[in-house]
């Protein structure tokens, strides 16, 4: 019971610190949380203009397809890059409180999640209106998005701990995600990939995580069981790695701050 109470307090702390971060981020801004919507929307319009209107990627309802990949992608990449500095950027606080360091990581990711969910809810509305299988989309959206969220929280904790030891990590992650963006079927469909490099796209964990979201929101179909199992395996592996690091390392990295 003591452990449960302690965990409950820690999760409340995550929620509070995330809300403080949001308050700080948008306080004094003209449109406040509207930026959470405007940023991904402008990004979507730019990619739609380039690939939908100019290059004319042959995918029906391309805007929804693009959004179904781009929104989760932005959530994962921003969260993991920010996580790599979640602990190092709070050196002073970490050195004066006994609070578990992973709380900061989860708080930062929760901020990103909040912004993503706002944009995602709009996408969901569009997908429901444009699809013949609205009920299925509503029923499956949570099970499909859940692995994306679990993966990000787990991998974020890993990145945060590694980021304390290896200060080059945020820069490396920036490069990594710049490359992975083009190796993941976000602006194109995986069937358009040449056979010679298909394996890279096929076994790319991000492609699997987003694949189920794209199948549901764009295709209006339920993802295959194989795909769902694969996404949950990826997500739970990341979560297990994050929990193991948090338990084994705890606050010991304070000496490296």
């Amino acid at each position: 019971m003591l452990l449960n109470e302690s965990l409950k307090t820690e999760l409340k702390t995550v929620h509070f610190i995330a809300s403080v971060s949001l308050y700080k981020k948008y306080c004094g801004s003209l449109i406040g949380m509207g930026w959470s919507l405007l940023n991904p929307l402008v990004q979507l319009i730019v990619y739609f203009f380039a690939f939908g209107l100019i290059i004319k990627v042959p995918i029906d309802n391309y805007f929804v397809y693009l959004a179904a990949g781009l929104l989760p992608w932005t959530f994962i990449s921003s969260s993991l890059i920010n996580s790599a500095t979640s602990i190092t950027s709070r050196k002073g606080t970490c050195q004066n409180t006994a609070m578990p360091h992973w709380i900061f990581v989860l708080s930062d990711i929760s901020c990103e999640l909040f912004a993503t969910l706002i944009a995602m809810s709009l996408l969901l509305a569009v997908a429901i209106v444009t699809s013949d299988n609205a009920l299925m989309i509503v029923a499956l959206i949570v099970p499909v998005l859940l692995p994306v969220v679990i993966f990000t929280y787990g991998a974020g904790v890993v990145m945060a701990y590694l980021g304390v030891l290896y200060r080059d990590l945020p820069h490396l992650l920036n490069l990594f995600f710049s490359v992975m963006f083009w190796l993941t079927p976000i602006v194109y469909h995986w069937t358009m990939v040449p056979k010679s490099i298909e394996v890279i796209v096929k076994y790319n964990p991000f492609a699997m995580l987003f694949g189920s979201v794209q199948v549901l929101l764009h295709g209006g179909a339920a993802p295959t069981l194989d795909l769902m199992i694969a996404t949950y395996v990826i997500a739970l592996t990341a979560a297990a790695a994050g929990i193991t690091m948090a338990r084994r390392i705890g606050n010991k990295l304070i000496y490296a701050l």
Partner: peptide, 24 residues
């Protein structure tokens, strides 16, 4: 206690409680 300079006192008090595991 890790107070934030640009936050109001009330929010900082709550933040101080959170950092010292006293949010409840």
């Amino acid at each position: 206690l890790g107070f934030e300079p640009d936050l109001p006192l009330r929010l900082n008090i709550k933040l101080g409680l959170a950092y010292s595991n006293r949010l409840p």
